[in-house]
């Protein structure tokens, strides 16, 4: 039987030491049982390694940064669509999701399907709103407050205590052990990611992550929990192992059921010594370690693509426990002319 060939656009080709999820997503798509793919990479910068991985990515286009606004992004996507006839786009960066969610209807009219959280879900789970989110859905979250001025930290000392977490609206998180550090991190983060900056109570414990997929009606289509085994100095997992933690899975299903989550997600959880699971952060997208889920039997990129196209997508029932992913880096040899082409023409 001939499998259909889908043209899928994927962002996040920056497979670097703090990697974007794109390359892992593409590996999942290439292994899909129900379709074949032609992969169109979307890159922001000309050094994203995925651009040069020709066995994974068929063609790459540069797209404008989210800060340029949706109009510019749309006109670039119209151009790409006129040449590539995309069926699906899978955006993989937090900062670009806002724009893609806004463009969902317009892209659909162009024949491009996506499977993203709703605008309301996207806003509600935001770091800045996490405290309210926890209350609303009955999930334990660390005390947090969004602040607009570094002087506010003084007033929060008693409530939060040192060390405290200082987090950017989009990216970056630091542990501050004293006022001096807290203010430095506040300035550093606000300069890069704007205001507000989130102050969060530091939770001692063991970190667990769950990646999964919700169908938008409250059903959990996929869920794989992972314990980081080795962490880089940037706090990213370099190795991790699939685990069987019923409580984690039940919190995940509760999250999907209560929020009717639509699309992929990653839950960052912290388990304290007295066995309380705090939901630290909700990433509204596929994580970079998603290939572990593929490897243990839950091909989340494939299932997400099927949901985007409105195809029937049964929930995964199980996964293999105790499988490890171990990340490695790999040096490609690239001709200068390739770098030249993507830099000058914005296409390769």
């Amino acid at each position: 039987m001939n499998k259909p060939v889908l043209n899928i656009g994927v962002t996040g080709l920056n497979a670097i030491d703090s990697p974007g999820p794109g390359v892992a997503v593409i590996r999942g798509l290439r292994e899909a049982a129900s379709f074949d793919v032609r992969i169109i990479g979307f890159a922001y910068e000309s050094m994203e390694p995925g651009i040069y991985m020709h066995d994974l990515v068929d063609r790459t286009y540069q797209i404008p940064y989210p800060s340029a606004g949706t109009d510019v992004l749309l006109s670039r996507l119209e151009y790409i669509q006129s040449r590539e006839n995309l069926h699906v786009i899978i955006p993989n960066f937090d900062a670009e999701l806002y724009s893609f969610i806004k463009l969902e209807d317009k892209l659909m009219q162009m024949g491009i399907h996506m499977f993203l959280p709703t605008q309301a879900q996207f806003e509600e789970r935001h770091k800045v709103n996490l405290s309210d989110f926890g209350k609303k859905y009955g999930l334990d979250v660390p005390l947090g407050k969004a602040i607009y001025d570094s002087s506010e930290i003084f007033g929060l000392q008693n409530e939060f205590d040192f060390p405290m977490m200082i987090k950017g609206k989009w990216y970056d998180a630091y542990i501050a052990y004293n006022m001096e550090q807290a203010r430095t991190y506040f300035n550093k983060i606000s300069a890069k990611w704007g205001l507000p900056v989130v102050i969060q109570r530091f939770i001692h414990g063991t970190e667990y992550n769950v990646t999964g997929l919700g169908d938008g009606n409250g059903n959990t289509i996929a869920a794989v929990p992972m314990r980081k085994q080795f962490i880089t100095d940037k706090g990213k997992a370099w190795a991790g192992i699939s685990i069987d933690d019923k409580k984690l899975l039940s919190i995940t299903r509760q999250f999907v059921r209560e929020t009717k989550w639509r699309g992929a997600f990653e839950l960052e959880m912290m388990k304290t010594n007295d066995n309380i699971y705090y939901l630290m952060e909700i990433n509204p997208r596929i994580p970079a370690w998603v290939y572990l889920a593929v490897g243990v039997g839950q091909n989340i990129p494939e299932a997400l693509t099927r949901l985007a196209l409105g195809k029937e997508t049964p929930a995964f029932e199980s996964y293999e426990v105790g499988k490890l992913f171990i990340r490695y880096s790999y040096d490609m040899i690239v001709d200068r002319t390739e770098f030249e082409k993507i830099s000058i023409n914005g296409e390769l």
Partner: peptide, 15 residues
């Protein structure tokens, strides 16, 4: 000069 992190002309802003 082409520098890592520099937007190409396709990273251009609407303005």
């Amino acid at each position: 000069k082409l520098e890592a992190g520099m937007p190409g002309k396709f990273g251009m802003r609407s303005e």
